[in-house]
Simulated scan of single mutants.
Amino acid sequence: MGASKVFFTNLRATPKMNLLQKLERLVKKAGMDEIAFKDKFTAVKIHFGEPGNLAYLRPNYAKVIVDLIKSMGGKVFLTDCNTLYVGRRKDALEHMDAAYENGYNPFTTGCQIIIGDGLKGTDEVYVPVIGGEHVKEAKIGRAVMDADIFISLNHFKGHELTGFGGALKNIGMGCGSRAGKMEMHSDGKPVVRSKACVGCGICEKICAHSAITITDKKAQIDHAKCAGCGRCIGACHANAIAAAWDESNDVLNKKMAEYSWAVLNGRPHFHISLIVDVSPFCDCHAENDLPIIPDIGMLASFDPVALDMACADLALKAPVIAGSYLAEQLKKQGGSEHDHFCATHPETNWIVCLDHAEKIGIGTKQYELIEV
């Protein structure tokens, strides 16, 4: 496989060309308008941001992409899947409330929001992963898989488990249903936080495999019977059931790549990343810390692996912002030569995801950077 083309534009603006106009020019130069959108359902995968976090992408960027797709006759919608952890995006109703609160609605973006895995994170499609090393069937939100065309609009930032979050993180982890996210983060079996459990029995009633029993007013899960569907997590009003979070970060990265393969395989796809507000932690946090590096620019490509590699290379060349979490980590570690993301989160190794994605045929780490 030869080098993939990754298109880049900086964040300088003039009275004749603002950032939104530059984004439209970028994706057109990168060839997005060559996709046959007419009468095709098109999913634009985005992270709506956890309320309280201000680093997520503004809805203005999404509107540029939505308007372009609509101008070519596409039937476009914005989407994300429900979260695995406790927060404001655990079910579709709260998720949409959070999206609206953060400015995402049909009036600001020009299209509807559909939560990909339904009300409780259980509306999923089992997608075979041909040659998967860790995943045989990926559990992907149904609305994501129902789309004819897939577009990812990514906020490039740090991440405490994967080093950074870019295109592959937004696609693989972001499109997994609750059970899918649990499979990536753990061996796929939930656990009970006994202190939080009130013994209401809702989880016992909803379990289709009779894996949950209430003993001494506390829920217990028999992992020999548990199918790992995650329905009990969504049903628990006390937030007493959670994923085990016991998977190594390297395996998590590989699973994420295999989930990305499941989402992208067999249909047109295109990817856009913005290296802005590069916070050290995920947008799933209800807060955002000072960026670890300055804003850099916007990038687009048909190849998400090359796109992530290009974003990482640009970020690694950027100076560290004084007083940031990364600056503090470097002071503690006492080193001058470093990888920004591995220094921010020393237990992570982000290249594992890109290496595995390249190995299974999603794309290539080799790229030609074209400035527009």
Rank of each mutant, 00 (worst) to 15 (best):
K157Q: 12
G118D: 06
A143E: 15
R142Q: 12
M145F: 09
G165H: 05
K136M: 03
S152A: 12
A138M: 13
L119I: 12
H155E: 01
K157I: 07
F150R: 07
G158E: 06
V144C: 13
Y126P: 02
G121V: 15
R142F: 05
D148N: 09
F164A: 07
V125D: 12
F150W: 05
D123F: 06
E133F: 04
K157A: 14
D123A: 11
V129F: 02
G163F: 03
F156N: 13
V127Q: 01
K136F: 00
K120E: 08
L161R: 14
D117E: 11
H155G: 02
L119T: 14
D146F: 04
A138V: 10
K157Y: 14
M145G: 00
H134I: 03
G141L: 04
K136N: 13
T162A: 15
V135A: 04
M145W: 05
H159E: 08
G158D: 06
V125N: 09
L161S: 07
V135F: 01
Y126H: 14
E160Y: 10
H159L: 12
G116V: 06
V135N: 01
S152P: 07
M145K: 13
E133G: 10
I130G: 05
T162C: 14
E124S: 14
P128W: 11
E124P: 00
E137N: 15
A143R: 15
I151V: 11
F156L: 07
A147D: 06
S152K: 14
Y126C: 11
D146P: 03
E124R: 09
G131F: 02
G121C: 10
G116F: 04
F150G: 02
P128K: 13
D117P: 03
I130R: 07
V127R: 01
L161T: 09
V129H: 02
E133V: 00
D117S: 07
V125R: 15
L119D: 07
H134F: 14
L153V: 11
V127P: 01
K136Y: 02
I151F: 04
N154P: 04
G163W: 10
I149F: 01
G158H: 08
N154M: 08
E133T: 07
F150E: 08
F150I: 15
V144D: 03
I149A: 00
H159F: 05
D148T: 12
I149C: 03
G158L: 05
A138L: 05
K139V: 13
H155P: 01
G141F: 11
H134D: 04
E133W: 00
E160K: 13
V125H: 06
I140Q: 12
I140Y: 05
D123P: 00
I149D: 02
D148R: 02
T162K: 06
H134K: 10
S152Q: 04
V125G: 01
G131W: 01
L119W: 12
